[in-house]
Amino acid sequence: VKKMAKAIMADPNKADEVYKKWADKGYTLTQMSNFLKSKTAGKYDRVYNGYVIHLD
């Protein structure tokens, strides 16, 4: 998940494709939050927020 999150950060155009894969795998927002937690607070906030919007 972190590898794909980094791919989104490097190229935001990949976001919809990645979010669809995550949704197809049934990842919940709680799971995504836990996967994307980082020592650098807020590092993956943009990715998480994008997934929230995708699921909505």
Rank of each mutant, 00 (worst) to 15 (best):
V1N: 02
K2L: 11
K2W: 02
K2I: 12
K3W: 09
K3S: 11
K3C: 14
K3A: 13
K3V: 10
M4T: 05
M4V: 04
M4H: 07
M4K: 05
A5I: 06
K6E: 14
A7H: 07
A7Y: 08
A7T: 10
A7K: 11
A7N: 07
I8L: 07
M9L: 15
M9A: 04
A10E: 12
A10D: 13
D11W: 06
D11N: 12
D11K: 06
D11T: 05
P12H: 07
P12I: 08
N13E: 12
N13T: 15
N13F: 10
N13D: 12
K14I: 15
K14N: 09
A15D: 04
A15V: 04
D16P: 14
D16N: 12
E17D: 10
E17I: 10
E17F: 10
E17A: 12
V18F: 08
V18G: 03
V18I: 15
V18N: 04
Y19S: 02
Y19D: 00
K20R: 12
K20V: 07
K21L: 15
K21Y: 15
K21R: 12
W22I: 01
A23D: 06
A23M: 09
D24H: 09
D24L: 12
D24W: 06
D24P: 00
K25P: 03
K25W: 15
K25C: 15
G26T: 01
G26Q: 05
G26K: 06
Y27P: 01
T28C: 05
T28M: 00
T28Q: 03
T28H: 02
T28F: 02
T28V: 01
L29N: 04
L29W: 04
L29F: 05
L29K: 12
T30L: 12
T30P: 08
T30Y: 11
Q31Y: 03
Q31R: 04
Q31N: 05
M32L: 14
M32W: 01
M32F: 04
S33L: 14
S33W: 14
S33A: 15
N34P: 00
F35C: 08
F35A: 09
L36V: 00
L36W: 02
L36F: 05
L36S: 00
K37G: 08
K37Q: 13
K37R: 11
K37S: 12
K37L: 08
S38G: 07
K39G: 13
K39Y: 08
K39W: 08
K39A: 12
T40G: 08
T40S: 10
T40Y: 10
A41Y: 09
G42F: 06
G42L: 04
G42S: 05
K43S: 06
K43D: 06
K43H: 06
K43R: 08
Y44K: 02
Y44E: 03
Y44F: 10
Y44P: 00
D45C: 09
D45P: 00
D45I: 06
D45M: 06
R46S: 15
R46Q: 15
V47W: 04
V47E: 01
Y48H: 03
Y48W: 06
Y48S: 00
N49T: 10
N49S: 09
N49C: 15
G50L: 05
G50F: 07
G50W: 07
Y51M: 02
Y51I: 04
Y51E: 01
V52H: 07
V52N: 03
V52E: 10
I53Q: 14
I53H: 13
H54G: 02
H54N: 01
L55E: 01
